[in-house]
């Protein structure tokens, strides 16, 4: 059975699309996200968490999870979950794949998405006392005072 059919059979609410580049894109609702991930890992055997990141879709935020199997030319699964822009919240999947720990921290850092149940959700790339917001949001504004640009010759 093809991957898309398996997923729709188990999660009828999930939107499954096959991209022309050979990826299976699955959009799930935030409340189904954790359950879906557990199914994908334990039921379908996607054991390799390659990447977790976010995207700012301007009307909502999207958490994107790239999962693979440890088999040659295996299926490429992209799990997407869209969360509310004002109050972005989604469950953490660190207990399924411990490797997404820092990816979730980075996504929180850059997009402000709150991963509930994450063991240690702190800023990772930016300093801990950073007050300027979440830089990868499309409406991010650099509020730091502009520094004078020093060019040789106009001191």
């Amino acid at each position: 059975m093809a991957l898309a059919e398996q997923i729709t059979a188990e999660f009828p609410s999930a939107q499954v699309t096959e991209s022309s580049y050979g990826e299976t894109l699955v959009k799930v609702a935030p409340e189904d996200y954790k359950k879906f991930c557990r199914y994908v890992k334990e039921g379908l055997g996607f054991s390799y968490p390659s990447d977790l990141t976010g995207t700012d879709r301007t009307d909502c935020l999207e958490v994107v999870l790239h999962l693979f199997k440890m088999e040659p030319n295996g299926p490429r699964l992209t799990v997407k979950v869209q969360v509310d822009r004002q109050n972005p919240k989604v469950e953490s999947v660190t207990d399924l794949w411990p490797g997404v720990d820092w990816h979730e921290r980075e996504t929180m850092d850059m997009f402000g998405i709150d991963f509930e149940g994450h063991p240690d959700l702190r800023r990772i790339l930016l300093p801990e006392n950073w007050q300027g917001g979440h830089p990868l949001l499309k409406d991010f504004e650099d509020k730091r005072p502009e520094r004078p640009r020093l060019v040789r010759g106009d001191r």
Binding site: S47, Y48, P49, S50, D51, M70, W97, P98, G99, V100
Partner: peptide
Amino acid sequence: EVAIAYGA
């Protein structure tokens, strides 16, 4: 198995 779960 740890290496795979961590995405090494």
